[in-house]
C-alpha cells in the first residue's frame, strides 16, 4: 500500500509544483511560530511585571506613545506584501492559470458523481468521443456515444487514474450532480468540480507510485468513501497500460456499478 507516503506532517511531495506550495506552508509556519513565541514572551513578561502589587499604582502612559502600536503592523504588512508579490501571485499563476498545451500533455477528462470518479481517456487518437447526458445509463456512467468514431478507442475507468511520469497531465474536471473537490495530497493539488462547468487542472507527477485522490467537498452521505487510486507509471508502462485497455471494454463501466 501507499502507507508510507503519509505521516503527521505534509505527505510525500510528488508533483512538479508540490515544492512551491510546501515552501509557502513552511515559510509561513516558521514565521507564525516566531511571531507567536516572541509575542508570548512579551505577554508573559507583561503579566509578571505588571501584576498587581500593593502600593504600586498603574502608570498612565503619555498620549504620544500611541504610534508604537503600529510597529508590529508595519512588520506584518511588509511580510505580507512580500508574500503576495514574490510568492502567492507568481505561484498561483503557475499552478492555476498557465496550462500545458493539449498537444504536449496527457489528456484526461474526470467526471465526478455521487460517489465515484469517472475517468475518461481519449485513447490513441487523442480525441475524446462525444458525451451526452441523455445517454447516461447504469452501464455508461459518463454517457459516452459509442457510435462516435472518436469514441472507438476511448478508455473509461472508475476510481482509478493513471498518469505518466514527468509529463504534464491536463485534466478537464466536471461533475454530473453536486459539487465535489479533486484533491491529491501528494500532488498538493485541489480543485472543486462544479456542475455546469468544465474546469482545467494540470499536474506533472515527479515520482512513480500509488497515490490517493479523495473528495474534499461535502457531497452527500458517502462523501468520505469517495476516493480513487492514482497510479503514476513510467511513460513506457503508461503507454502499455493504455494500449491494453483500448478499445473500450464493457467491464470498465460495470466496475463503477460494482463499487455501489
Amino acid at each position: 500500500m501507499n502507507g508510507n507516503n503519509y505521516g503527521w506532517g505534509l505527505p510525500v511531495a510528488a508533483s512538479s509544483y508540490a515544492h512551491d506550495i510546501d515552501f509557502g506552508i513552511i515559510l509561513i509556519h516558521v514565521a507564525m511560530v516566531a511571531i507567536f513565541v516572541l509575542w508570548g514572551i512579551f505577554f508573559t513578561y507583561l503579566l509578571l511585571k505588571y501584576r498587581r502589587r500593593d502600593g504600586v499604582p498603574a502608570e498612565r502612559e503619555h498620549e504620544h506613545g500611541a504610534l508604537k502600536s503600529l510597529a508590529p503592523d508595519i512588520v506584518v504588512m511588509v511580510f505580507e506584501i512580500g508574500l503576495i508579490v514574490f510568492y502567492a501571485i507568481p505561484s498561483w499563476s503557475k499552478i492555476k492559470m498557465n496550462f500545458p498545451q493539449p498537444g504536449e500533455a496527457n489528456q484526461v477528462d474526470i467526471i465526478a458523481e455521487q460517489f465515484a470518479w469517472n475517468i475518461h481517456y481519449p485513447g490513441a487518437d487523442g480525441k475524446f468521443g462525444r458525451r451526452d447526458p441523455k445517454l447516461v445509463h447504469f452501464s455508461n456512467p459518463i454517457g459516452l456515444d459509442r457510435d462516435d468514431k472518436d469514441a472507438q478507442d476511448d478508455v473509461v475507468l472508475a476510481n482509478e487514474i493513471h498518469m505518466p511520469l514527468g509529463k504534464p497531465t491536463l485534466i478537464r474536471l466536471s461533475s454530473k450532480d453536486v459539487i465535489h473537490s479533486f484533491f491529491i495530497p501528494e500532488f498538493r493539488i485541489k480543485q472543486d468540480a462544479m456542475p455546469g462547468m468544465v474546469i482545467p487542472v494540470w499536474v506533472t507527477p515527479t515520482a512513480v507510485g500509488k497515490y490517493e485522490l479523495s473528495c474534499a467537498q461535502l457531497c452527500g452521505f458517502a462523501h468520505s468513501f469517495m476516493r480513487a487510486d492514482v497510479i503514476v507509471d513510467t511513460p513506457e508502462d503508461f503507454d502499455a497500460w493504455l494500449k491494453s485497455h483500448a478499445p473500450v471494454k464493457q467491464e470498465a463501466p460495470t466496475k463503477a456499478a460494482e463499487s455501489w
Binding site: 506552508i25 509575542w39 501571485i89 505561484s91 498561483w92 473537490s181 498538493r188 467537498q217
Partner: peptide, 24 residues
Amino acid sequence: PLFGIGGLTGLPLGLTTTDIYLHD
C-alpha cells in the same frame, strides 16, 4: 494568545497558493 493563534493560522488559508493544499 488564543485569538492570536486563530488569526495567525488564517494566513496560510488566505494566501491563494497555500490554500490549494489546506482548503477544506
